[in-house]
Simulated assay, not measured.
Amino acid sequence: MWTNEYTATSPLPAQAIWNALKALHEGRLTYEGSDTFVLHGPFAKGTRVSVTPVGQDTFESTIVDLVENVTYADETSFGDTKLLFRHTLVPVEGGTQVTHRLDISGPSAAEVGPELGPQISGDFDVSMAKLFEQAEALANHG
C-alpha cells in the first residue's frame, strides 16, 4: 500500500467544513482547481460518483464511507489498483482538524504508488486551503 495525507486546522466548526465538502461532492460547489463531481444518487454510502479532475478524463468512484460531520471517503478502481480518498474532520480546541488522505492498494501499489500518488496528492495542501475558503464563504453567506 502507498499512502499520503495532509492535515490542516481551520477555526471553523466541523459542520461548516462538512457543508462545503458535501456541496463540492454533490456538484453544487466548484472553484478554481477543484475536481468536478456528479452524484448518481443520494449523498450516501454506496452511491456512484463521476469525478472529473481539471484537464483530465472523467472516472467513476463509489462512496464507501460517510458519517456526517466526521468522514467522507470514495474509492476508485483502475484494474486491480484501488485509490481510496478520505476526508476526516476532528473537532479540536479552536476549530476543526481536517485530514485528506490517499491510499493506493492492490498488487501493483508498490510500483504505481510512488509515481501516481504524488501526482494525485501533491496539491492536497492547496485543495484544503481552498476548501476552507469556500467553507468560510458558505458559513458567512449561506
Rank of each mutant, 00 (worst) to 15 (best):
V90K: 12
A135R: 05
S10Y: 08
T52D: 02
N19F: 06
E75N: 01
E75C: 10
G106L: 06
S77P: 00
W18R: 00
V70G: 00
I17R: 10
L116P: 07
P91R: 12
K130M: 15
H141Y: 13
L131A: 13
Q15N: 10
G95Y: 05
H25D: 02
N69R: 14
F124Q: 06
T88M: 05
Y6D: 12
G94Y: 05
L131F: 13
F124V: 09
Y6R: 11
G113T: 12
Q97P: 03
A8Q: 15
E93F: 10
P118G: 07
H25G: 00
N69I: 05
Q134I: 00
T9V: 15
Q56S: 13
E5T: 12
G41T: 10
V70L: 09
P118S: 04
G94T: 07
L131G: 13
T81F: 02
S105C: 01
V90E: 15
D65W: 11
V49G: 03
L83Y: 14
L138S: 09
L138H: 07
Y31V: 00
F132W: 14
R48D: 14
E133G: 03
S77D: 10
P114I: 11
G113M: 14
G27D: 05
F59V: 03
G106T: 03
T30L: 01
F85A: 03
E136P: 00
L138G: 06
W18G: 02
G46E: 10
F43K: 05
T99M: 04
G27A: 02
S121T: 04
F37A: 11
I120Q: 01
V90M: 06
F85W: 12
K45F: 12
N4C: 07
I63S: 01
F85N: 07
H40N: 15
P42S: 09
Q15I: 08
T52N: 07
H40C: 04
H87M: 11
M128T: 15
N4W: 09
P11L: 04
L102N: 04
T30K: 08
L89F: 15
V112S: 03
T7D: 09
T71F: 05
V49T: 11
V64E: 12
P91T: 15
A73H: 09
F132Q: 12
E111P: 00
A23N: 02
L24M: 12
T3M: 01
A137W: 13
T81S: 11
E111Y: 08
S121H: 05
V67W: 00
A137C: 02
P13R: 11
I63H: 02
Q119S: 14
T47Q: 01
L84T: 15
W18T: 02
E32G: 11
S121Q: 06
D74Y: 11
F78D: 02
V64W: 04
L29W: 06
A73C: 10
L89V: 13
H100E: 13
W18D: 02
E136M: 10
A20Y: 12
E5F: 13
T52C: 08
